[in-house]
Amino acid sequence: MENIIRIENLIFDYPREEGKDVLRAIKGISLDIEKGSFTAVIGRNGSGKSTLAKLLNGLYVPTEGVIYVENWDTADDNHVWDVRQTAGMVFQNPDNQLVSSIVEDDVAFGPENIGTAPDEIRTRVNKALNDVRMGEYRLKAPHMLSGGQKQRVAIAGVLAMKPKCIIFDEPTAMLDPKGRHDVLRIIKNLNAEGITTILITHFMDEAVQADRVLIINDGEIILDGNPAEVFSHADEIKDAGLDVPVAVELAVRLRKRGIKIPDDVITVEDMVDFICQYK
């Protein structure tokens, strides 16, 4: 399979005020992201995961090492817009991402800025809003929407740029249960349609739905694999100040009491299946 993102020996330092040491947020990461894949990135606040996200779409450039997005070097000024169109970003707070007073204007903002023809803008906006199931709200004011709906509009705004990859930085952190559920379903649909998906999250039940899970701690990748592989390292994950998914936690506890539970019981569904085989 082809890789859409290649990261080689990445180091990133935040400059500090005079007289202070720089803060090294990324301490040597090499990583490839396969086209069409769904990768979840987990790490505590300050672990470097959001910094990594901002490096991926050229908001920051590497201090050392190199990042290629579709073979464009993110540090190359001539291709910064190519990089950003290829890899779109959705942030935590939808209120900070919406700019217009009408939903469809907001979605049109990106394509307008790159000089897309009006007919094409119309087509893209309609498709993007339908993809996030917000078509019927296209003439509403964003501030009248719920958090989950706003976040879906923000996603539509990114979709209208026709990205090949979307990086979601804790997109559900501020949402209620329904909003979280809806946004996650949209993310999974978009991935199923071929958009490479990188989901940064603190919710382990979201992470288990990815094909691949990366755990970042203190600027380094400490675990990388499919959810079953990664979450079998429950102790290491807890040492990094993180949680494991509910089903994994239960499995660990039940194993300690002598119940034999297979290692690939990771999701709630897995655990339900496991229990239900004993009737």
């Binding site: 509910v246 089903a247 569904e269 339900v272 239900c276 009737k279």
Partner: peptide, 21 residues
């Protein structure tokens, strides 16, 4: 549009599969 805690949800799903729990 609300839900129950994740572990509670899991217990309900087991019950829905016909297990008395």
């Amino acid at each position: 549009a609300l839900n129950v805690p994740p572990v509670t949800e899991m217990m309900y799903e087991v019950k829905e599969r016909g297990i008395e729990i």
